[in-house]
Structures are given as C-alpha cells and as structure tokens.
Amino acid sequence: MPMDRRANMVRLAPADNIAVALSDIAAGETALDRAQLMVTVRERIPQGHKIALQPIAADEPIIRFGMPVGLAKVAIAKGALVHIHNVRSQYLDNEVDHYE
C-alpha cells in the first residue's frame, strides 16, 4: 500500500525514537507519518534527516529500524533535528569532514 500522501515523515519501526523526513520540513510545521503520528518540529529538518519523536537523554541510543544507530551526545528535545551535532557513533568518529 503506498504511503499516505500527506505523510512527510516515516518511522521505520514501532520502537524507534526518531523519524526520517521524507521532504524538507520548516521550523514550526507539523510532521506527520502514515500512522497519523504527529510531531511539531522545533527547527528546519531537511529531507532525509531525523526528527526526535520524544525527548532523548544524553547517552541514550538513537533507535532506527529497531537498531541503535548512535548515542545522544546531549539531551535532545522532542521535535529537534537529530544529527552529528547531538549524536555520536559507537564505532568511529563522525565529526564533520570537509564538504562544500
């Protein structure tokens, strides 16, 4: 079944604490997934980036598709962008490389 047309985020598994933006979402907009889960985003979320679905404490794992994909570096608020500024890898340095 195709994803709900109005959905602009996707949560990949029920236990996930993040969702992935399917298109750019402006600060203050409501992000919505196919199951009608709603989150007001606190800042701009570019397409393909992650939104916190609930508050995430420092050192808690980021769960995507039921699997840990990093640890929170600091406390993360619900609706915040989740990315390298507040996530660290459990394996290798994910500090920003040079890019234009």
């Binding site: 992650k50 994909v69 459990q90």
Partner: peptide, 9 residues
C-alpha cells in the same frame, strides 16, 4: 553527513 546520515552504523 550533508544528506542526513549521522553515523557509520
């Protein structure tokens, strides 16, 4: 990173 992935895992 630019396109949304945060870690190797």
């Amino acid at each position: 990173i630019k396109h949304g992935l945060s870690t190797i895992e």
